[in-house]
């Protein structure tokens, strides 16, 4: 059978969602941000809620998320996305509101805003991309940088005796009564993408039911910051990031798992 006979509109089974704009993503080749964007927008498309969804973009590599997500979006100051989302959600309680933040934004400069939005149980979705490094500013240490991991501000490896420990923000917010669903996912393999998408769908369903805050960490790669080839960085992530940041649900239906 000729390929031309297969590639016909009636045989299409997958293409990028139209809720992503046509702009080429500003992310490095192989970066998980793009995949995370795609599945977030796919969920919004499949739920048919794009006319009622407002996204909040952070500061960091995904600062330009609003260029790629074809919905109404507000770009927040560094770390303040949960407060910005709170403001939007409180005045439009029937809209869907989500933040999309990296580790520096969410766990460092915005730690307080994150904790308090979670603790209030704001009825929003927080999507947290953790790649253990500051990508946009050129590979500096993040709160989630692993012990011994090299970055431009931990050039000899993160020394936990002076630089502190990697912050498990997701475990931390799971302890707060306001969070209803807390999970850690990844997007490096087809199965991981399917699971992560299911989690994002669940998060938006929770918002629809007004049950509280849904928090989804996506452990991701940063091949530029880690100075690796894209596929190698995914393998390194599996071997090094996952042991410290294990994948899976941490809190479901308001109850800690196990």
């Amino acid at each position: 059978m000729d390929i031309k006979d297969i590639i016909k509109p009636e045989n299409l089974v997958y293409k990028r969602t139209e809720l992503m704009t046509d702009k080429a993503l500003s992310y490095c080749p192989g970066c998980g941000h793009g995949t995370a964007h795609n599945i977030t927008m796919e969920v919004i498309e499949e739920m048919g809620i794009w006319e009622d969804t407002i996204g909040v973009a952070p500061v960091g590599c995904s600062v330009l998320a609003y260029e790629f997500m074809n919905i109404d979006m507000t770009q927040a100051a560094h770390g303040r996305a949960p407060a910005v989302a709170t403001g939007i959600k409180r005045v439009w309680p029937d809209k869907f509101v989500f933040t999309y933040q990296g580790d520096g934004d969410l766990a460092a400069i915005g730690g307080n805003e994150t904790i308090h939005a979670c603790n209030r149980g704001e009825n929003i979705v927080i999507i947290f991309i953790n790649n253990g490094i500051y990508g946009m500013t050129g590979g500096q240490m993040a709160p989630t940088t692993l012990p011994g991991m090299k970055s431009s501000t931990s050039p000899y490896g993160r020394d936990i005796s002076t630089m502190g420990h990697p912050l498990k923000m997701t475990e931390l917010v799971a302890q707060l009564p306001g969070t209803y669903f807390v999970t850690r996912q990844a997007v490096h393999t087809p199965n991981a993408v399917r699971k992560a998408k299911k989690a994002i769908r669940k998060a938006f369903e929770i918002q629809k039911e007004k049950k509280g805050l849904a928090f989804i960490e996506i452990v991701s790669n940063c091949n530029s910051g880690w100075k690796m080839e894209p596929v190698d960085s995914n393998n390194w992530m599996v071997d090094n990031m996952f042991p410290y940041f294990p994948l899976g649900d941490i809190k479901v239906n308001g109850e800690l798992v196990k």
Partner: peptide, 10 residues
């Protein structure tokens, strides 16, 4: 679905 840039149609 793993393509970060969404450039593959199937």
């Amino acid at each position: 679905i793993v393509c970060p840039d969404g450039v593959i149609s199937v």
